[in-house]
Design a protein around this nucleic acid. Structure first.
Lengths: 242, 242
DNA sequence: TAGATTGTTAATCGATTAACAATC
DNA sequence: TAGATTGTTAATCGATTAACAATC
């Protein structure tokens, strides 16, 4: 395909055609949000220093990150907020809409289905699926819960790009397999399991208890250092020391 | 404080008293879950290879990670699952219970309050707070929603260690300030804002739309490479090229 | 022109990985 | 003892940061 495409001067693109570092990709949404916040407050231009403050990073990192996208700032001036916002949105792919299906409409699924940020950010829920016949037919916002067995049909008809799994842990792998089988290559997993997927499928995981545990680890360290304990010592036997 | 503590032989600890790398800390909960899964299936011993598979990492990384905690395996044999599980739990600080307060009981707050994994994992919800008088008094599971103004009292009386913020974005910083003022040093933030906190306070952020955007970026790249486009080209003007 | 600020370089730091000696 | 597998070393890779030349 690409080999038969005629070459044009646009092919000689100054930006790195090889991807943006993962760490940078993960921060682009943060920058986007910071830019939106500034725009809402009427700001039209910001320096890397100001932008970085709004995004909670240091300015060197922000400039480096933005440099992977291109040269969208003006030396001596800063960045035009609207212009930069558009460039980042385009880079992420938010200039198009991404159809999303949510599988598993329990407590969390309900919350996700009601989350207004979905639509406004370039993602559109095209279906809510649940395996429980009792739940099927229930209305949530604009949507009606459909049977899990509609999965393939939904993916096909709506060209679903991203599958969100908010089922119990026990069901997650099977749901994931079926999403992948239906052609989905991006999965956002809220179930507390490690999903196995074939090469080429991206999985991201959101996990409450992992986050709490990471906080607990640091909290414990803070408490220990306050008490004058050397971290990692408490709980070790001190008998037989004399 | 710690300088006046008498030295004991336990002070000479073979393990690195200086902390575990952040990347490793973030994986310990994953290992813990994998171990629990294996234990439930009746397994008592596992090699680093098996454990790594269950956790979705490679075995070199797993062994390196575990080596920061100590030497809890047996060469030629593997790891005793129960023993390793205990050691990781102790390292994270899960041998004690961490009191948690949830502020903002909308859709997401409801889901969090109902999340059973909370209690079973060493975290206990001690209060649900909401600023809306209409919601105060509502029962969720074992809890009754209390007024936001009870915040300081709850933190003090229950010795809350971790504050969970599930308010709208507009309220999150104020809630955070008040939690920190009340003495909390660990915050889990579900609101889509960058919180500013003083030195010594840990914030972790869970953000649905960030996750979706990261997936969208990769999804876009996959689509582009299939279509034979050089990523980063589409949308650039091609006029004036001739 | 003088002042400000970007975009980039280069140094540093931390994380990952392969390989293997130690040892059960 | 022979086979298996850990714990550690060292090489590599990627991310962060400070500093500054380029340039508005």
């Amino acid at each position: 395909m690409s080999s038969s495409r005629p070459r044009r001067s646009a092919d000689i693109d100054p930006r790195p055609s090889r991807g943006i570092p993962e760490a940078t990709v993960a921060r682009l949404p943060v920058y986007l949000r910071a830019l939106t916040g500034l725009a809402e407050r009427g700001t039209t231009t910001a320096s890397s220093e100001e932008l970085a403050r709004a995004a909670g990073v240091n300015s060197a990192k922000l400039r480096k990150d933005l440099s992977y996208l291109g040269s969208y700032g003006t030396r001596g001036v800063g960045y035009d907020i609207e212009y930069l916002r558009y460039q980042i949105a385009r880079e992420i792919g938010l200039t198009q809409d991404w159809p999303v299906v949510i599988v598993g409409i329990g407590n969390l699924g309900h919350a996700l289905a009601n989350y207004s940020g979905f639509a406004t950010k370039g993602f559109g829920i095209v279906a809510l699926l649940d395996a429980d016949p009792q739940r099927v037919g229930e209305r949530i916002g604009d949507h009606t819960i459909r049977p899990y067995s509609d999965l393939e049909q939904v993916v096909r008809e709506s060209g679903v790009a991203i599958g969100v799994i908010s089922t119990p842990a026990s069901a997650a792998q099977e749901v994931c397999d079926r999403l992948v089988e239906a052609g989905i290559t991006s999965v956002l997993n809220f179930a507390p399991v490690v999903l196995s997927v074939p090469e080429g499928v991206d999985v991201r995981k959101v996990d409450l208890s992992t986050e709490l545990q990471i906080l607990a680890y640091h909290e414990q360290r803070k408490a220990l250092s306050q008490n004058g304990h050397v971290p990692g010592i408490e709980g070790l036997p001190v008998e037989g020391v004399s």
